[in-house]
Computed example of a mutant assay.
Amino acid sequence: MHCPNCYSTQLVKNGFNALGKQLYRCKDCRRHFVLNPAKERISDDKKMLIDRLLLERISLAGIARVVGVSEAWLQNYVNAKYAQTPREILVKKKSAGRLTIECDELWSFVRKLDNKQWVWLAMDRDTREIVGVYIGDRSTKSAQALWDSLPLAYRQSAFSYTDFWSAYEKVFPKNRHQAVGKESGQTNHIERFNCTLRQRVSRLVRKTVSFSKKLENHIGAIWYFVHHYNASLRLN
């Protein structure tokens, strides 16, 4: 048995990899390796399991351990999946009529606490669908982006309830908008969904080591969960 890099026989065992194979370290060149490595094809069943685990509050390292894949492969898989996740609302078409939405902003961060990323959300009160999403700062520009993300029927006729953040008043039509406090109960549903997001998406937990390091993945993870959430409503 020798090192595949320098052919030294001065080897020591050095733990196990994600697949449970014995790792060795060369004492001369410090190369890490396994004996008889084989690139195992990741089955479709494993990929489906990973897709479901991404919807739970589990870190990527935890998913890699559970499924038995390398963290590097998993990160590349997640990068591709989030990049392909649509950034637009997919809900049943609504005719312009009596529609009511509840809106709220959820604080989050990417890489460091100072890099705040606010998740702006709008929910249809009757169907509980998420009908508007935007991730950005807490400015009027972001409130406008949330408004623009709403399907046309909601922009034409929906009445909206929000908190007292001033950006809403500058964007939402005054005759169809009311700012309310939590005690009113008018934004209970969207606030409850915010709790669901924090419970299900690990990178949104307030104190976590699973925080996002890339903004694109942060945005992708939120959109991925929103699409799953809306799809689950249609199945019920």
Results as ranks from 00 to 15, higher is better:
36 N>Q: 10
183 E>R: 14
196 T>D: 02
17 N>E: 08
233 L>T: 09
116 K>G: 02
6 C>N: 12
115 N>F: 07
86 P>H: 10
176 R>L: 06
43 S>D: 02
180 V>P: 04
78 V>G: 03
47 K>N: 06
234 R>T: 12
180 V>R: 06
89 I>D: 04
81 K>W: 07
84 Q>Y: 03
215 L>V: 14
208 T>Q: 09
153 A>Y: 04
110 V>F: 04
95 S>A: 14
189 H>K: 12
223 W>N: 09
21 K>W: 08
156 Q>E: 15
169 E>D: 14
224 Y>M: 10
58 I>G: 00
64 A>V: 09
37 P>G: 13
101 I>T: 13
37 P>F: 05
6 C>K: 12
191 E>C: 11
14 N>E: 01
195 C>F: 10
9 T>Y: 02
27 K>Y: 01
7 Y>I: 04
65 R>V: 11
155 R>M: 02
78 V>Q: 02
99 L>R: 08
55 L>N: 09
128 R>N: 08
99 L>N: 10
29 C>T: 06
82 Y>W: 15
213 K>A: 05
90 L>C: 09
53 L>G: 06
12 V>R: 11
142 S>I: 07
214 K>A: 11
29 C>L: 05
141 K>N: 08
217 N>F: 09
227 H>A: 06
236 N>Q: 12
22 Q>T: 14
100 T>M: 10
128 R>F: 07
80 A>I: 13
213 K>F: 03
212 S>Y: 10
